[in-house]
Design a binder for these strands. Sequence first.
DNA 1: ACCGCTCATGTAATCGTTTACACGGTCCAC
DNA 2: GTGGACCGTGTAAACGATTACATGAGCGGT
Lengths: 331, 331
Amino acid sequence: MTRKPRIADVAQLAGVSTATVSRTLSRPDRVEEITRARVLRAVAATGYRVNAAARDLRSRRARAITLLAPNLANTFFSRIVAAVQDVAGSAGLVVQISDSQVEAARLSAIGTDGRTDGILLLDGAVDPAIVASWTVPVVMVCEWLEGVDLSSIGTDNAGGIGQAVDHLAGLGHRRIAFLSGPSGNVLSVARAAGYEAAMRRLGLAVAAPDRLPGDFTMRSGAAAAVRWAAVPDRATAVVCASDESAIGFVSECDRKGFACPRDVSVVGFDDIEFGDRFIPPLTTVHQPRDLLGRRAATLLVEALSGGAPLRPGRRMLPSRLVVRGSTAAPS
Amino acid sequence: MTRKPRIADVAQLAGVSTATVSRTLSRPDRVEEITRARVLRAVAATGYRVNAAARDLRSRRARAITLLAPNLANTFFSRIVAAVQDVAGSAGLVVQISDSQVEAARLSAIGTDGRTDGILLLDGAVDPAIVASWTVPVVMVCEWLEGVDLSSIGTDNAGGIGQAVDHLAGLGHRRIAFLSGPSGNVLSVARAAGYEAAMRRLGLAVAAPDRLPGDFTMRSGAAAAVRWAAVPDRATAVVCASDESAIGFVSECDRKGFACPRDVSVVGFDDIEFGDRFIPPLTTVHQPRDLLGRRAATLLVEALSGGAPLRPGRRMLPSRLVVRGSTAAPS
DNA sequence: ACCGCTCATGTAATCGTTTACACGGTCCAC
DNA sequence: GTGGACCGTGTAAACGATTACATGAGCGGT
């Protein structure tokens, strides 16, 4: 127990060379069974653990992928993370998670310092120059980088919002407002575009106060409710760019004495876990988060294992409206 | 652009030795200003990035800490993660996040493969033998390991529950039920004990059906509501071991036609973001998650920077009841 | 004039693996 | 009986940094 055992210690105890120990551990089928057994016994006896830094250095790979997201606090990411971990784990890769909102130097280092083999990027707002500086493969999830041709996988934002608007119109709503996401965000833009297109398609007018600014958060949803309530001829329904902002909206309405769906119908986006247990249960656009994470991870893992190289281009999974209790016919 | 530049390339371009380049990058004050400038220019010209694997190997440290949590999907962890990232980041450490529910071999490797300098463990259910096998310092957060004397930091679970019970009793409730967490969990045990102690202290009887089984999840909260509703002489208040289960409970009550707080007062535990925006806003026991993460990270970072060695022992931050709309006098 | 100190830099060993290549033995086809 | 393919193992050269130690210059005190 004097110091950490090295591969040489194992080799000596087993009476073989370090090469054989290494092979036993990484490609057991390349050593004879009897040797393998001796080596494994020596490994157990010494309590040997391979040193990842040394291995990474020599083999020029890290056996790890990194998931980079802005604001890890966001509930939306959880399922994706779990799915990624599942896929990567069974491929023998460690998943590291880092915040994409750190300073440029640190962010740039992540993709160049040899500590990860690939990056799953969930943030469409990182500097393209930094992404370009990375020397490992990148797959974008949910969001994408305008003007940079990466491999990306996401959901049909405009289509989902379209279904929400159709649903409300079908219930008889004519004044349908839209609570948007943060202005720079690609998802915001896509969802807002989906709203405008659907309204136009249905021949419904969009009054200026029906475009409510927001940023995906509950706080911004609550603020939007205040603005909404202040207008005398209020919209009778609101499509929100996220579940969190929808919850914030409904909650603030409640505090102001407006009930959902009696006084206003509300649709969210994402289908987070809490939506189903909200009062009222939230009608929302479901995103297949598990599948999203699984697909993205699979893409990356396969690229790493030398299979198909990463083909750039945006892949899109369908989104689907889940009708629950927060929408009803206008009263 | 033929291959990745190494430190030798920079040294050659700058006309100095690799040692000087290394010193320029890690301890700039040890090289003369003019040399430093030349080296930095060469670094910029070559686009050199230090190879972390090589550095980690030679210097026997990884400049990273690992946060290990069961079920990363849990909303409760988010804030803690953010705080840890903040502290570690400004100490120049990368934060890696891994799932503590992976197979034993992988879990054990995390603390022995030289890829991390320290571990922040948020799971009290990992095998103590695995923890013992780790060769890096460990700080436990929120939970702790029974029988293993690690450094840990958490909140006053029993005290928090006690405040909740006192609050309800003060409102006039006499039949106060408890919705517990998963049976093996240390937090569950501590919170359940806090409940029993508070009830005894107040001279209130606990009927058998007032001990509702749960596991922190919304689903289990909903299931508990079904059991609660089935009893003819129902408890008039419920203290829940987590906010999620409290939300599940209230939501299911609502579906069954029971309103909160009119028909039942409910208190949660954790003070997650959604609690404040739930309808009704949830009365809950606040845990200082930000502080918890900050303290734990600071403890670990300081131990790593060679300062104070990690003193084992449980440190406890006070918890505090936040009274909102889900509790009222019994009707 | 010499000693000893500090300071900036260079030389080269070292961290612990993986793996290209070499080597000797076995087996089979001709 | 010889040549070639194949298999299991060993030898030793990487991988790319950090850092202990050596070196030599500059300088002040005696």
